[in-house]
Design a protein around this nucleic acid. Structure first.
Lengths: 211, 211
DNA sequence: ATATAATATGACTGACGGGTCACATTGTAG
DNA sequence: CTACAATGTGACCCGTCAGTCATATTATAT
């Protein structure tokens, strides 16, 4: 969707522009984000931005997909998408996720906002597609769990999915929030705290809060 | 926060203005919402809006609190805030909540968006205050549950709170979404479906998804 | 009925920023 | 080195709309 000219840029410049864009959109939202500021922070002229993208909307949309693809690459490298048990889903990739949030807090925060629908109709298509893909994978996790007998089979998959999503999203948000407080390098202690947090979440997923 | 002039208006006019504002903000977001449109839909002149409010921001902020107070009145009338069991929390007030969403879909959707942080820094203060109040009540529910022995006591209240919020928020959102599909008056059948949905949620809260 | 205050109105203004464009700079081919 | 294409640049243009204000209307007081 960006123009040919953008693709011909060296990777450094491309990345500088995308990060500047994401930073600006994340800080001020779509409407109040200024192209001028993005250009300045990326070290290019305002006019150049329009050599690369038709308009603000396109720049934004590409920033979203750029961020997603960036994650895809990392996540694919980290956690092979084997069919695993729901309860292992987060635990197994806990350290990786923690690293990702720690190393790319801006990208994670931006993507979280996009996913939560903060950009309204702008990202509707992307969200639909993304939701579909995510759901597909999670539904497979649930189906697997039912087969293995680790998930109760008296409830509809859709209901279980909602439950699973509700819990995991909320906990992920909490972690993102926590990581923001790490002014410097997080300690091993902080990681252990996070791991404990994850274990509690999994325990709640599994056993619920009843007694 | 609105000017004296606004408070002197008859209730009809006040309500017309607030609903027009909420409709516009909900449809287009803060930045793209036009004062002119709000004025027209409320049947007043644009200049009049500025007799009532200092600026757009104030109008928006008051619309948020107006919506909340509107809810407070209804909810207070419906569900007396007695100390009840967590698991009864939603079930007991299910029909009332359903009615509310059915009768005031716009207000519910707007408030949901505000609560989910869709308006960014604009509503930060309100959200903080609201979050504090809500959490206080929910923590009391959790503490009660622990005392009664209906909630496991091996986990931190904060963790249980997160779990509870994650599940209930997601399910509430789903209901809001479903209600939007009722083009006309919802049937008893639809209500029963909703009730069943609630029961499943409570069951998941209680027992989790493990087997 | 007249004066005065309060409120209603919509044409107008000014700021803002997305997008353009004429010109400058750099890259490439012959 | 020259010509031509591709890319870079930022001053400028122009639509939009929040907010103003001079004037009209309505309410209140005497």
């Amino acid at each position: 969707m960006p123009k040919r000219t953008f693709h011909r840029l060296d990777d450094d410049k491309k990345e500088r522009i995308m990060r500047a864009a994401i930073e600006e959109f994340q800080a001020h939202g779509f409407e109040k984000a200024k192209i001028e500021t993005i250009a300045q922070n990326a070290g290019v002229a305002k006019g150049s931005i329009y050599q690369y993208f038709d308009d603000k909307r396109e720049l934004f949309l590409y920033a979203v997909t750029w961020g997603l693809e960036y994650f895809m690459k990392i996540i694919d490298r980290q956690t092979p998408l084997k069919d695993m048990d729901v309860y292992d889903y987060f635990l197994s990739s806990g350290r990786d996720r923690f690293e990702l949030i720690k190393n790319e807090p801006l990208l994670v925060a931006f993507s979280t906002d996009v996913a939560s629908g903060k950009y309204g109709t702008l990202t509707q298509e992307i969200n639909n597609e993304l939701g579909r893909v995510g759901e597909e994978y999670e539904l497979r996790l649930i189906a697997n769990g039912k087969k293995r007998g680790t998930i109760r089979d008296d409830l509809d998959d859709k209901v279980l999915l909602l439950f699973f999503q509700g819990v995991t999203e909320k906990f992920t948000m909490k972690i993102v929030e926590k990581v923001k407080d790490f002014k410097v390098e997080p300690t091993e202690e902080q990681f252990l705290e996070m791991e404990d947090f994850m274990k509690n979440m999994v325990s709640l997923l599994k056993q619920g809060m009843g007694r």
